[in-house]
Design a binder for these strands. Structure first.
Length: 492
RNA sequence: GGGCCGUUAGCUCAGCAGGUAGAGCAGCGGACUUUUAAUCCGUUGGUCGUGAGUUCGAUUCUCGCACGGCCCA
């Protein structure tokens, strides 16, 4: 601590000296004629001679990233939003006053430069400064210039420093933004309406997950941060908004891991008159669209594994996928105790009083999911683990539902919505019974949602896509923390 | 929640079979008007994550705790 203070002290002293010279350390604004990337774009192709004819001077601004001082001259690298360029400062060109000011500046400071372009002996496109302005004094040293910042803890806690020095991090978040933009455009072009539904719920619903609890003082009531927007989006479908989507945060009060952050971004969309089978096609189309508008390829490599997005994607029922990977006795699909015994045999940890459907999905999670590398739709989820899905007409024990797996991870969950209010009430009742039996993830009875269904919801299909995991895939990020700007951390 | 690993200068890292620490970059002073990891000379900077134990003596060994990473639940 002593040392960082001495560095800050040194810089504060320079600030005092600058002020004595009449320099404002934090002036308001600066007129920029061109951004660095525009300069490079426009002048990169010009050689030494053509550049010499370009006498126009302009103003640029950015952060000083490096400096190489000579007695009466200096080279600095300036970085702005998108690019970096070298600036050559000569005492005889900028004048005595400016050069003194410059001498009191540090790496990390923001600077405005007025100058014109030339090429150095080594042919590097460089700005010859005529004038300079201190735009913001930096008091803390940046990480070292060639190893940069690698400590993951500091990178997550001080993302601003990470972004300053690690260009690949900035690039990743630019891709993230493009992915979300592409999703939005895709749905808007298909005539979906983007909506915002409550983040604070009196009754948390729409997913089997534990919620965060908060308290509203004026109303003297508990509120929960939403675990999913599902029940509100479907209320909108009841209201006649037949195609809606929302891209926003969900909050789940669960463990933190390489694939879980307490708050994460989810896309949910609902489409009246569609079925889950329609959504499989739509999902393939959606991914093609995103790939085309971001990474522009149909095959990606994620953590060393090739993933081929070529359509149509593989479709398997949950039961068939377990049959294929684990070759279990057939009774496990019919008999809860047989499934439990099989799970034990396979060393899979299941609660003693776990319901049949949950045991089967546990089996799937361990035996099948990690192997689903290329995009795969898994269908036929048991009704008892799908409290909001329409049950299948041929086999009411399963639902009209799929989950999408890519790279061994769940990416999307979709189903034909349960719009029968009588059936939905019974499903809620089963959930409440599970909750009373100790299942903290079981869902709550939501009578207003039932009331909405009682007014009539058209046949509808809906889907949720985990945006963070999608971004991980497309940016080859090993951890969800790499794709969230400010991931959750314990206080230091 | 469990297991393994890590935490040393602003950053990236050495080191210590136990005798209170080094390098490079950054910083500071000096030389230097086409460098780009500029160069050359000199130099400052550390409660070695934290608390306890063992010891004449702990950054080093032991245990607890905190934070982080990976794996498992």
């Amino acid at each position: 601590m002593e040392n960082i203070n001495s560095i800050i002290e040194e810089r504060l002293n320079k600030g005092v000296k600058l002020k004595e010279k009449g320099v404002n350390l934090y002036p308001a604004g600066y007129h920029i004629d061109l951004t660095v990337d525009k300069i490079i774009q426009r002048f990169e192709k010009l050689d030494k001679e053509s550049l010499e004819k370009e006498t126009a001077s302009f103003q640029i601004a950015g952060r000083v990233m490096a400096r190489r001082d000579f007695g009466k001259a200096s080279f600095i690298n300036i970085k702005d939003n998108k690019a970096q360029i070298q600036v050559y400062l000569r005492k005889d060109k900028v004048g005595e006053e400016n050069f003194q000011t410059f001498k009191l500046m540090d790496i990390g400071d923001f600077i405005g430069i007025k100058g014109s372009l030339f090429r150095t002996r080594t042919d590097e496109l460089t700005i010859l400064a005529e004038d300079l302005t201190l735009l913001s004094k930096s008091l803390r040293p940046l990480p070292e210039k060639w190893h940069g910042l690698t400590d993951v803890e500091t990178r997550y806690r001080q993302r601003y420093v990470d972004l300053i020095v690690n260009d690949d991090v900035k690039d990743l978040f630019i891709i993230r933004s493009k992915i979300i933009q592409a999703l939005r455009t895709f749905f808007i072009e298909k005539d979906f309406l983007e909506v915002e539904t409550p983040m604070m719920h009196a009754i948390p619903g729409g997913a089997t997950a534990r919620p965060f609890k908060t308290y509203h003082n004026a109303l003297s009531m508990d509120l929960y941060l939403r675990v999913a927007p599902e029940l509100y989006l479907k209320r909108l479908v009841v209201g006649g908004l037949e195609k809606v989507f929302e891209i926003n945060r969900n909050f789940r009060n669960e463990g933190i891991s390489i694939k879980h952050n307490p708050e994460f971004t989810m896309l949910e969309f609902y489409m009246a008159y569609a079925t889950y089978e329609d959504l499989m096609k739509l999902t393939e189309e959606l991914f093609s669209y995103i790939l085309k508008h971001t990474v522009n390829t149909s095959t990606i490599t994620y953590q060393g594994t090739q993933i081929d997005f070529s359509t149509p994607w593989d479709r398997q029922t949950l039961f068939d996928s377990i049959r294929k990977m684990a070759n279990p006795p057939e009774e496990i699909f019919l008999d809860r105790d047989a499934a439990y015994a099989f799970a034990k045999k396979k060393d899979i940890n299941v609660n003693e009083n776990e319901i049949h459907g949950k045991i089967l999905t546990n089996l799937f999670d361990h035996l099948v999911e990690p192997h689903l590398t290329n995009p795969t739709f898994i269908t036929g989820y048991p009704t008892e683990v799908s409290p909001l899905s329409r049950s299948n007409d041929q086999d009411p024990a399963i639902t009209d539902r799929f989950e999408l797996f890519i790279g061994g991870r769940e990416i999307a969950n979709a189903f034909t919505e349960l719009n029968d209010p009588v059936d939905q009430r019974q499903r809620f009742e089963s959930q409440v019974a599970l909750r009373e039996a100790g299942d903290k993830e079981a869902q709550f009875m939501d009578t207003d949602y039932l009331r909405a269904l009682e007014y009539g919801m058209p046949p509808t299909a809906g889907e949720g896509i985990g945006i963070d995991r999608l971004v991980m895939l497309l940016t080859n990020a090993p951890s969800i923390r790499d794709v969230i700007l400010f991931p959750h951390m314990r206080p230091q």
